[in-house]
């Protein structure tokens, strides 16, 4: 039996700030907050982080999928949600029966032309920010129905925007977990505030009304 590799020491707040913030002036500012916190004796109980990083961390680790299975792929999705693979370990196990409480739509199964308007409506009912995972060959491009499936939408990116594709017929539960990790990593690089702030700065410069 091999010994476990030695655990890497936890990173300090200063190290994390140096990694996350590239602008030297910004970094000086954050480090000065850190100094003040330390000088006031709160060094280990307070975390300093850029707001966007904190928002992304919260979003990526608390994805609420929509309970929504359309065909055979949904069986694998259910397996991922159940005890053996346990999606809940990664903060994405709170399956919601209503789109209004969900932010991740795992489209698992064959989307027919008859179902397409319902899929679109469910997508529209999910509040922002929302993410779509196309699970399985059917949702990616029609799958086994691509040639003779008169009734199948040949890829759900024809009706809703897709963030991540999971190939397979059906994909194994591990593949779905991998897609979740990739999506979480992608959310980590989002700039949820940047767009709004740059819009506001632009408006202030050009003198137009606030958004």
């Amino acid at each position: 039996m091999s010994a476990n590799p030695p655990a890497s020491p936890p990173r300090t707040a200063e190290q994390m700030l140096r990694e996350a913030i590239t602008d030297p002036r910004e970094l000086t500012r954050y480090l000065s907050y850190l100094d003040r916190i330390k000088s006031e004796g709160m060094g280990t109980s307070v975390m300093v982080a850029p707001l966007e990083a904190a928002i992304n961390w919260a979003r990526a680790n608390s994805l609420w999928p929509l309970t929504f299975g359309l065909a055979c792929c949904a069986i694998e999705m259910m397996a991922v949600g159940a005890s053996r693979f346990d999606l809940d370990r990664f903060g994405a196990g709170a399956f919601r029966p209503t789109p209004r409480q969900a932010d991740l739509m795992i489209v698992a199964g064959t989307v027919t032309h008859k179902m397409a308007p319902r899929v679109m409506r469910l997508y529209e009912q999910i509040p922002e920010p929302k993410f779509v995972m196309a699970m399985g060959a059917c949702t990616i491009g029609g799958g086994p129905y691509v040639k003779h499936g008169y009734h199948v939408v040949k890829g759900i990116d024809r009706i809703v925007p897709v963030d991540i594709y999971v190939p397979g017929c059906p994909p194994r539960p591990e593949a779905l977990l991998d897609a979740l990790f990739k999506l979480q990593a992608r959310i980590g690089s989002d700039r949820p505030l940047a767009a709004r702030w740059s819009k506001r700065a632009e408006n202030e410069l050009t003198g137009s009304a606030r958004p």
Binding site: H113, H148, Y150, V153, R158
Partner: peptide, 19 residues
């Protein structure tokens, strides 16, 4: 009626293309 042997799938249904 799609199970007729001479049925041809529509090019699009409600704007969603089939090609």
């Amino acid at each position: 009626h799609p199970l007729r042997k001479d049925y041809a799938a529509p090019a699009a249904y409600h704007g969603v293309t089939n090609a």
